[in-house]
Design a protein around this nucleic acid. Sequence first.
DNA 1: CGGCAGTTTGATGTTACTCAATTTAAGTGG
DNA 2: CCACTTAAATTGAGTAACATCAAACTGCCG
Lengths: 241, 241
Amino acid sequence: MQSSEINTASLCVTCPSRKSGFCGTLIGSARENERTERNWQQFTAAPAGKQIANRDQIPDLVLIVCNGWAFRYFQLADGGKQILKFLLPGDILSPATFLRKAFDFSVKALTDVRLSGFARSEISARCGLSEDMRVSVAEAFAADAHDATELVTVLGRRSAEERIAYLFLHLIPRIAARTVIREQRYPLPLRHQHIADAVGLTPVHVSRVLSLFRDRGIVTLSDGILAVTNFPELERIGSLK
Amino acid sequence: MQSSEINTASLCVTCPSRKSGFCGTLIGSARENERTERNWQQFTAAPAGKQIANRDQIPDLVLIVCNGWAFRYFQLADGGKQILKFLLPGDILSPATFLRKAFDFSVKALTDVRLSGFARSEISARCGLSEDMRVSVAEAFAADAHDATELVTVLGRRSAEERIAYLFLHLIPRIAARTVIREQRYPLPLRHQHIADAVGLTPVHVSRVLSLFRDRGIVTLSDGILAVTNFPELERIGSLK
DNA sequence: CGGCAGTTTGATGTTACTCAATTTAAGTGG
DNA sequence: CCACTTAAATTGAGTAACATCAAACTGCCG
């Protein structure tokens, strides 16, 4: 089960999908690449569970996940969390960092992760030069906006089963774009608690729903592997349209 | 109770708040204004209840609400709606239209509204010229992202009372930026059904919660006026932090 | 006056939460 | 390899929150 990795030297080549990560035009024309390379920071490593970014922080770097999983979340006063998005290799921690803007959320490493960062000043400069760069930045915002629209709808209007099915359906293609999948088995390093925090349920109820899915032969989640046994049914339950 | 209005001729002047609407740099330097003016479309009027934009549609205009209220929503197959955001004068129907991208949602007029539109090609051209313009576009995305983060958190983790209190707290400053407010009475043209669709409840339950708020002397909503009688308590209930 | 849309209220049902106990899995040190 | 520990998952029982259904009530407009 090889996992993909993004590194500074070959970002465009290694990035699994132009649509899902911010890498399409980050490395621009050949002429400019030399300058670009120098502006990438060294890798930063973080162990599983470590908080990578804080709400209200204003970093000078636009950070990207190179390896491993992380997640954006909003911390509640009562100790609860709402997970906003799971971050896979190629994902930007926060598009808001393109501007000189504070994070709206915190970010935590889910597995061990490595990050790379790019100076915001460099991005801004490039936006002045290249239409592709501007579009690329805007696309990053637009992709997040799209996800947010769907997530709001799911949380506002769908049942527990539908929420969890939606989460899986949303993650499956993103995982598949980054690893070789055999026999519909997707690596998914989530605890029940993470799923609960992502879809607005309790871990206890997540367990019950997953048991149901298992008994009905739809999906099985164990040992960090999501095995899909009845995709059409999963889609019927979790699809928004 | 005068209501504010945005019009083509004096967008910068009339717009109530640079932060809440997209108008800060839409009209750029004096030198360029003449060209800009010509590119604004005539007003478009829509009666209350009319659908203004469809999901999956790709318009050539970036549309802005000039007058009245509208809302973005996601239509479900089962007839349900999820309202994503209420649009007040100065708000862009969808930042995604800056790119050549389909709407992620539909938009409907809540009251009678007037709209104005700007050719996307014009915006793109200006992005090439002006740093302010680029920032302005990015700010529009970032503002929506911020709202979405909070809304997801509210829907995922808070009770009915908290959701409704949050909605009011979120709307109050936006209304105040656009009308003169006396005695804590805010014009709010929402039916219970709209509130329900916005925060993921049924209109029946919205009615019960509003009765509670009224009985406890927190807020009263009737005749399209939201009268706030105990703001600190409302804030205690609806605040996210 | 009648009709309609929206709100309110009551009774009942369902979903998902809470609390608590039990099981399973994964280490860890002997 | 085996006790011991600890985190996570499962299961059951009771409860709270919100939905659903239905009926009555209100204001408004023709």
